[in-house]
Amino acid sequence: MILKLQHLLKTTTCISLTFFSCLLWAEIEQEQAIHAPVDELHASLLNIMENADTKSFQERYNTMEEVVVKHFNSPLIAKVILSRHWKTLNKQSQADFIDLFNRLTISTYVNRFDSFSGEVFSNLTIEQMKENRFMVKTEFMRTDDKPVSFNYIVQDDGAGWKIISVIANGINDLSLKRADYSAIIKEKDFAALVASLKEKISDLQPK
């Protein structure tokens, strides 16, 4: 009887341990999956910074293009930024705008992250916002200045976790661009917005 009880206890312990290990493993895997787009973005940014003197703008642009296209949910970002104006566009105009917006994002990254002096990205925490939406908190550590807080909202769009918003020192790029772009559309029109964005992209290219 005692032997049977001991056997039952051992079996129960084994099953419980296996169950909790699986749960823990699943949680670690999910956390890694949520972090992956941010980690790859940071790796690419450090890459273009370290190679700013040896690689051309176009080469660094290609490096960033790969990661932005893969890890940013650009269609969703474009929809949110254009807000009510999004529905007034036909499919082709929407696709063109997404492409234009990606070019602006990539050019901005290449233009801004153009030197390296020992900077590192440091992962802080992950905070759940909704069932399929998390905020990944990180810091950009500089050797000669205060760290910059870089937080990312990542969302599972069914095909994996993607970045849908970047927040630098509390300033949400999505909100900033929505306010900025809607002012141009309100004052002029969508064509003027497109023209302005093309001009900005051009200004970001090396002269």
Binding site: N73, L76, K79, V80, S83, R84, W86, K87, M129, K130, E131, N132, R133, M135, I153, Q155, D156, D157, G158, K162, I164, S165, I167, N172, L174, S175, R178, S182
Partner: peptide, 25 residues
């Protein structure tokens, strides 16, 4: 930071705007 997405629960399709201009996904 979630407010800008309205009642978004899925990244699939863009839906309607509410009266304030917020995009509801």
């Amino acid at each position: 930071y979630d407010d800008i997405f309205g009642d978004a629960s899925d990244a699939g399709n863009a839906g309607d705007d509410d009266e304030s201009g917020m995009l509801i996904i």
